Simulated scan of single mutants.
Amino acid sequence: MSSDRSPRSYIVQSVDKAARLLHALAAEDVEHLGVTELAGRLGFSKNQVFRLLKTLERRGLVEQDPQTERYHLGTTVLFLAGHVQRGMGLVRAAAPILDRLALETGETIHLVARRGLEGVMVDFRESPQPVRLTARLGGHYPLHAGACPVAILAALPPDWQQKVIDDLPMLPRYTERTVADPVRLREAIEQVQALGYSLSDEDVDADGRAVGAAILDRAGWPVGAVSVAGPSSRLTQERLHQYGQKVHAAAAEIGARLSLVVGRIEQEATL
């Protein structure tokens, strides 16, 4: 039996608005927002925002600072995120390798999963050093800049790469070194394919460098990437290439472990 209803007709507007509010509170440029600020960002009435906040607060998804009366994401979000992580084969497979890389390098380690033509930060190990690169769990990144995203891009088929190249004029320029020229991006892809790892030289963080390698599944598709990231003062070009060998080996090991984890999950599902 066919249905003439469009996908939009199944959307529950109040739930959609609540989800937009949560995304607003998760924006990189804010820590806390008040009712008036949220209403302005979302285009909702203050009454709508207040009612949504009180509903979400009841479930622990948002919390109110008693002193400022402004709102931020609640601890229930962490609980839910933990379930997402535990259910991801990639995070499970990578965990011991991330721990080892963090100990060996003393730098921040990123694990990024591919979602279409974006990378999503799904796990990390932050450097214990006072000057370090940080990570934002759940952050979304286009594939034209950064060690992990470009490593993923270089492992995709040419027609997928072309989609990113075509979109390049619309993609963000994080620093003066962010690639904005299609020819340079193609050269970067070729360099990654030749080296086996991607070099990020202040193209995302003005004072940061990183080196990353793509993680491939059993079919050879990039499911994500792993990287070592740190301040430019410590990650010299020589050290980047040294770590490049480590992340290349780590990515291969994660890919092998991922095949085992996925295979085990598939086996458990049939029991």
Score class of each variant (00 low, 15 high):
residue 118 E to L: 11
residue 76 T to E: 13
residue 100 R to I: 02
residue 76 T to S: 10
residue 102 A to W: 15
residue 54 K to W: 00
residue 105 T to E: 10
residue 37 E to Q: 15
residue 211 V to R: 03
residue 240 L to E: 14
residue 252 A to M: 08
residue 18 A to E: 14
residue 46 K to P: 01
residue 70 R to G: 00
residue 122 V to Q: 03
residue 154 A to K: 07
residue 115 R to C: 09
residue 5 R to W: 14
residue 243 Y to V: 04
residue 113 A to H: 02
residue 196 G to H: 01
residue 172 P to M: 00
residue 111 L to V: 05
residue 165 I to N: 03
residue 254 I to Y: 07
residue 178 T to A: 10
residue 106 G to M: 10
residue 243 Y to L: 09
residue 206 A to H: 08
residue 82 G to P: 06
residue 169 P to Y: 12
residue 148 C to G: 01
residue 104 E to Q: 15
residue 236 T to L: 08
residue 150 V to D: 01
residue 152 I to A: 01
residue 42 L to G: 00
residue 48 Q to P: 06
residue 251 A to N: 06
residue 233 S to T: 15
residue 223 V to M: 06
residue 265 I to T: 10
residue 197 Y to R: 01
residue 141 Y to T: 08
residue 250 A to W: 12
residue 139 G to N: 10
residue 108 T to E: 08
residue 136 R to H: 15
residue 220 G to I: 02
residue 23 H to Y: 12
residue 237 Q to R: 15
residue 101 L to P: 12
residue 261 V to Q: 09
residue 140 H to M: 09
residue 207 D to L: 06
residue 114 R to V: 03
residue 148 C to V: 02
residue 108 T to F: 06
residue 70 R to F: 07
residue 143 L to Y: 05
residue 15 V to Q: 15
residue 255 G to Y: 10
residue 33 L to Y: 11
residue 183 V to K: 05
residue 232 S to R: 14
residue 150 V to Q: 06
residue 60 G to D: 00
residue 117 L to T: 08
residue 38 L to A: 09
residue 51 R to S: 09
residue 92 R to H: 11
residue 264 R to M: 11
residue 197 Y to L: 02
residue 229 A to K: 05
residue 172 P to D: 00
residue 254 I to F: 04
residue 263 G to I: 13
residue 139 G to C: 06
residue 106 G to N: 11
residue 122 V to K: 02
residue 219 A to C: 08
residue 41 R to V: 13
residue 266 E to W: 07
residue 259 S to K: 01
residue 52 L to P: 06
residue 170 M to S: 11
residue 222 P to Y: 04
residue 261 V to S: 09
residue 192 V to W: 03
residue 230 G to V: 01
residue 234 R to V: 12
residue 237 Q to P: 07
residue 90 L to M: 02
residue 35 V to D: 04
residue 133 L to C: 11
residue 44 F to W: 04
residue 20 R to M: 13
residue 16 D to A: 14
residue 129 Q to Y: 12
residue 94 A to H: 01
residue 271 L to M: 08
residue 101 L to F: 13
residue 70 R to P: 04
residue 51 R to V: 10
residue 270 T to I: 13
residue 225 A to V: 09
residue 158 P to C: 08
residue 32 H to M: 10
residue 174 Y to Q: 03
residue 65 D to C: 01
residue 243 Y to N: 11
residue 231 P to A: 13
residue 253 E to G: 07
residue 92 R to Q: 12
residue 183 V to P: 03
residue 228 V to C: 10
residue 121 M to S: 08
residue 175 T to C: 10
residue 41 R to M: 10
residue 71 Y to P: 00
residue 24 A to V: 15
residue 95 A to M: 07
residue 61 L to R: 03
residue 177 R to P: 04
residue 199 L to D: 03
residue 191 Q to I: 05
residue 80 L to M: 08
residue 116 G to E: 07
residue 255 G to S: 09
residue 65 D to E: 01
residue 204 V to Y: 03
residue 104 E to C: 07
residue 177 R to D: 03
residue 188 A to N: 03
residue 53 L to V: 09
residue 15 V to F: 15
residue 201 D to M: 02
residue 195 L to Y: 05
residue 128 P to A: 13
residue 181 D to A: 01
